[in-house]
Design a protein around this nucleic acid. Structure first.
Lengths: 157, 157
DNA sequence: GTTGCTGAGTCTGTCAACTAGACCTAGCAT
DNA sequence: ATGCTAGGTCTAGTTGACAGACTCAGCAAC
């Protein structure tokens, strides 16, 4: 009945570390647009409605922490600028965004159905997140998971 | 080259809706602890280090929005109190937390390895999130996904 | 060569949110 | 009566968000 994890410290929790980096509202929207293919400041602003200052700050953080990188480009008749592109580290955040979207589609359903569908490129089938285990089982809910202290766990003093 | 989604409005995006409900830093930590089995205010406070006022507010929102519910209980020699438990809607947020954790373990690795392991109850194998498609393929990255406007999509004026 | 345009910001003042710390409250126990 | 405890609320100070105006660099048209 008493879950084991409660005897261990939360200080080095991976969720905490991740949330400290990307756990702000606008950051999620910025990432959503990055995955949608948006790369430029003004497009980001138009699509997220983030205040310019906040957007500037969030993009700066994402670059500093390595989820985005600045890439210079130049359109003809324009001065050189830079755009923001997802790095590998940034691309790996995709499951987070998909999980948020999946939950939203299920529990905060928009009238008219989901505004966005994810499809497997090439095969065209709908994409979804699944919890699976090493033995190949697909888990139906959080209740099928037992959290255990890992190698980096620290017992509470 | 130009992603289709950019011609559609972001106003009714499921990610936006979800983030508006649970996209605050402390909320994620509260949910993490809820999934760890923590149900009481003070335990939450001890494990998240959230300021009491913020914790009170976040728990209140989660109850209001239906991710948690208040359940009365009474320990002997104590006055009646209530505890916070995940609802079905709350349990469905598990993939979000797992996604955050998985990313953190991979890209913000803690010295000594992951502090928490998720195992399949009964079978004991490690649990992970996978992006799969309707045809049974497992996708390796966000690059294998094509986002398309869904039934609820609204073209930008 | 100066006027204007555009993308990508920065500056300012206002207002809301967060924070630490003290204080409160109901019911049980002494 | 007094104290203890879980679960808050109150206060004051600091930080962060926000809208709206301003800046700045380079290109281009006049």
């Amino acid at each position: 009945m008493h879950p084991q994890m409660l005897d261990y410290d939360t200080a080095n929790c991976a969720i905490g570390a991740t949330v400290a980096m990307i756990g702000e509202k606008w950051t999620f929207l910025v990432l959503r647009e990055a995955f949608n293919g948006v790369r430029r400041f003004d497009d980001m602003q138009r699509r997220t409605h983030a205040p310019r200052q906040v957007l500037s700050d969030r993009l700066g953080r994402l670059v500093r922490d390595g989820q985005l990188r600045k890439v210079p480009y130049q359109e003809q008749g324009q001065r050189g600028r830079h755009e923001y592109r997802l790095t590998g580290k940034g691309l790996d955040l995709y499951p987070v965004l998909v999980a948020l979207m999946q939950w939203g589609d299920q529990h905060a359903a928009q009238p008219g159905g989901p505004p966005m569908l994810l499809t497997h490129r090439g095969c065209g089938q709908p994409v979804r997140l699944e919890l699976t285990c090493g033995a190949g089982h697909v888990l139906g809910s959080a209740r099928d998971v037992t959290p255990l202290p890992g190698p980096g766990a620290r017992r509470i003093a």
